[in-house]
Structures are given as C-alpha cells and as structure tokens.
Design a protein around this nucleic acid. Structure first.
Lengths: 152, 152
DNA sequence: CAGTGTCAGTTCCCTGAGGGAACCCCAATT
DNA sequence: AATTGGGGTTCCCTCAGGGAACTGACACTG
C-alpha cells in the first residue's frame, strides 16, 4: 500500500488506484496478460526487486485480480488473470493508446494490437454504453451518485 | 519520478505511467477535470502533502498534461488540462467504471456521469476504432510494432 | 502605512517503502 | 550426496512521502 490509503475515499478512481496504483502493478498485470505468468519471468522481464514483486503479487491476489496456482508437483506457481483482472486490461489498453499517441515519437508504437473481430491492427475508442456515441472528458457531466459521501 | 524510471522502456503503458503513474497524480488530474484548479483547493480536497502536490503539479506541467496560468495580478495560478491532459481523462473514466463495477459495493457508485449526447447517466465501453465492435483483453493479439526494441 | 489575510509554494525533520544483493527452502534430477 | 532451479525472504541503505512550520508576493483594511 502507498503511504496514504485511498481505499476509503468515496471515489472509484481512488479505489481503483488502491488496487493497481502502486508502482509496478500495472506492468505486472501487462506481463501476466501477455503470457509471463511466473515469478522468475516477471522479475527478469521487469527488472523489479524480488521483494517488491512478491508484495505486488500478493496484493493483486488478495484483491482478486490475479489467481495464484500450482503448475507442478514441485512448489511452483503461476499467476493468471481472474475475470476481475481481465477487465482491468481495458485500462491497460487505454493507457497504451494514449502513450502510443503522445509519447511514442518517431519510432512509432512499440506494440500493435490486432483485433480478432475484424482482423485489423487497431486501437480502442471510448463509447457510451447507452447510446454508442463517443464519450470523452468534455462529453459528460459528473453527478453525485448513491455511494457519494453525504457531507455536512 | 518513481524509484525506477519507466520512460525508457519500449512500452507505451510504462511510458504513460512515467507521466501519471506516481502516487496522487491521477487524483490531481481528476480534481482538475471537475473544476478544482487551484493549489489550495487541490491540497484541501485531497489531503495531500503540499510538498508532494508541488512536485506532482510541476511534473504534470513539464509533461504537457497541465498548463499553469495566472488568474490574478497577485501571484496566483491555476492549473488547467491541455489537450494532452484532456485525453488522459479517458483513462480516468475507465478506472472509474472498473471501480464502480468491482469495488463500489452496496452503496453504489459515488459519482455518476451524464452523457451529453444522449442525456443519460451511463458509462464507457471500449470499441475498436476500425470496426466499432467491442475490444477487450481477449479480443486482441499483441504484435511487435515499429517502435519495438530489436533484441538479439 | 503598519497590520492582516490569502494563495502558492519551501523548508525541515521523520518514517517507511523501494532497490539490490545475498540467502533459504523445497522437490526433482544425476 | 550433491546439484539445480523456481519461488520466494532477509538484510541494509537510500530516497520519496507525510506533516507541520515557515516564507514571499500582493491586496485590502483601519
């Protein structure tokens, strides 16, 4: 956990950060997503401290984002995405899209994504679940919801 | 910057984390988005250390995500989203959506978003920019792109 | 025009998380 | 019995975050 605990805030962004907001966590998730499922693989690929990797994996398992399961009769384990974790990958795809657009520079995107449905290399776009039109920062008004803190 | 510099990695997720991956940064962005533009407002709303808030704001300005501009003849400044920063809000909306679904619990979402186009309270969904079909974790294959590191 | 207030930071010290390297445990292999 | 290899622990050290006090620039007040 970071120095300040975000999980109690009445904000889904803060709460989500409490799950994957710690340093390295999104990169661990990315690696697991693309098939690096084991401790040694993750450590080697990321260059992360083994101590921190242990902490992150435990936290992600505790949060139900990853599942830890044995793959051998020896004490060997691999980490796989749960349904909850798989939906977090949406976040990674949006991050990748933003980074591709604003940070990739001359060299172009380091990774491309081929969409199964159409077979094309493409990216993601945000649309309203209700009407299907694009939905971005300036297309919405935030309103207090049922879980909002009732302040005095 | 975090202990480890992610900006050199050949990964748009890592590079994006280098911009907004530090603790508090996404919450600062959220606040600026909803209209808390000044230092004192941000500090009071988040309860963040003033020192860290200063660091985060400077970093976000350096990265071109926020713009710092005077709003008085006195030395008073406010922070507003640039185009680059406004597109980052997509990320926040996806985070909020995930948090609403998986972490909000009985109380329900703390914040709702009304979509201007249809007038409904709704959420975001990821779709392929090419074909318009849904695009999630298991709908894509990652491929090396032009900016990929050429490893031996 | 001294005194007060406000905003926007700075500076200080203290704690605790991250980095890095060495070490440990267990089971299978030789 | 010794070796290997995955999956962690343990250790120490440094540096980032928390918290509170302090500063500086300008405007307003009596």
């Amino acid at each position: 956990m970071q120095r300040t605990d975000f999980s109690k805030m009445a904000c889904s962004i803060a709460r989500t950060l409490d799950v994957i907001g710690e340093p390295w966590s999104p990169l661990v998730l990315r690696d697991v997503w693309v098939g690096l499922n084991r401790f040694e693989q993750l450590q080697a690929d990321l260059g992360i401290s083994r101590k921190v990797l242990t902490e992150r994996l435990n936290h992600l398992v505790d949060q139900g984002v990853l599942e830890r399961r044995p793959y051998d009769r020896r004490p060997r384990y691999e980490y796989v995405l749960t349904a909850k974790g798989t939906e977090l990958v949406d976040l990674l795809m949006v991050m990748a899209g933003w980074g591709d657009k604003w940070l990739a520079g001359e060299a172009g995107p380091p990774v491309l994504y081929r969409h199964h449905a159409c077979g094309e290399v493409s990216g993601v776009e945000l649309r309203c679940t209700h009407c299907g039109e694009p939905m971005h920062a300036n297309d919405v008004d935030p309103l207090p919801g049922p879980g909002a803190a009732v302040s005095a």
